[in-house]
């Protein structure tokens, strides 16, 4: 008799603890409103890729300015910028990007020597297939969306800066105001609505092309099948998804 009571007592204790646990789970669980959004399955149909045609870029900096206002990029940091390479007759390489080219380029950088080859290279996040920044994020705040865009969860990022260190292309920065890592989102809010990213939208020379790599008839695939292109730092195995047409060996 005594034994049974004891057993019941244990049972009661177990159930009540479980009940409290489950109850508190529901009590503390945050409820978030559902937002109208492309479903996971819809997003799987996309694989956003990007082309930079360095032969067409004129270094006007429109993309940098457009990106800045579109994404409220803090002063002194850049989600995209334009580099200028000047190679002189004596094989010296001059590289510069004054203020990320947000005010364009004022005059030739190499003043003393004769420039034999010069060109602009716009840079942005490569949205690598094997992104080191996602690999190193300790909390899963850097992630790859189902449509293969490398994004930062600003509500989850702890701001450790490890991803900034891991990115070989220097496209990440710590947004000091928000205390979180920040980077190019490929204007995720725009491409979801069928609009081009701000930089593509603002390019006056069509030097930037974006599109769905999973669609064999997309413009980006047509261009990739026609033109010869290179990747930035391919030896690091990041498998970048930003293709550079007319890439020079000096560009890193």
């Amino acid at each position: 008799m005594e034994k049974i009571e004891r057993r019941q007592f244990i049972k009661l204790g177990l159930f009540s603890t479980a009940g409290i646990l489950v109850g508190s789970f529901f009590a503390f669980a945050k409820t978030e409103k559902d937002i109208e959004v492309n479903s996971y399955e819809d997003l799987l149909k996309f694989d956003w890729g990007y082309i930079v045609d360095t032969t067409r870029c004129i270094g006007c900096g429109s993309c940098v300015r457009a990106c800045k206002v579109e994404n409220e990029v803090p002063e002194g940091y850049f989600r995209t910028w334009v580099e200028r390479f000047e190679i002189t007759k004596d094989e010296t390489v001059y590289v510069d990007s004054p203020k990320g080219a947000i005010e364009g380029f004022n005059r030739d950088n190499a003043q003393t020597a004769e420039i034999v080859k010069a060109f602009f290279v716009p840079k942005l996040c490569n949205h690598c297939y094997d992104a080191p920044c996602i690999q190193v994020c300790p909390v899963g705040a850097s992630y790859r969306s189902p449509d293969k865009v490398v994004l930062v969860d600003k509500e989850h990022c702890v701001g450790c800066g490890y991803c900034v260190q891991a990115c070989p292309y220097g496209v990440r920065y710590i947004n000091e105001e928000k205390g979180v890592a920040d980077k190019c989102t490929l204007c995720y809010h725009r491409i979801q609505k069928g609009l081009a990213p701000a930089c593509v939208n603002s390019c006056p020379r069509n030097a930037r092309i974006y599109g769905n790599l999973k669609d064999p008839n997309s413009e980006i695939n047509k261009v990739l099948h026609q033109r010869r292109y290179g990747l930035l730092k391919p030896d690091l195995g990041t498998n970048p998804k930003c293709f550079y047409i007319g890439l020079d060996k000096e560009v890193k």
Binding site: Q135, V136, P138, V139, G140, H156, G159, E176
Partner: peptide, 28 residues
């Protein structure tokens, strides 16, 4: 020093709540 450096120190416990084990830092 780590907490002082974190941009969002109040979220520090995410490192144990939602660890991303592909990261070397997540084991911290």
């Amino acid at each position: 020093p780590l907490l002082n450096h974190l941009g969002r120190p109040e979220r520090a416990f995410y490192i144990m709540m939602t660890p991303n084990f592909s990261s070397a830092m997540s084991g911290f």
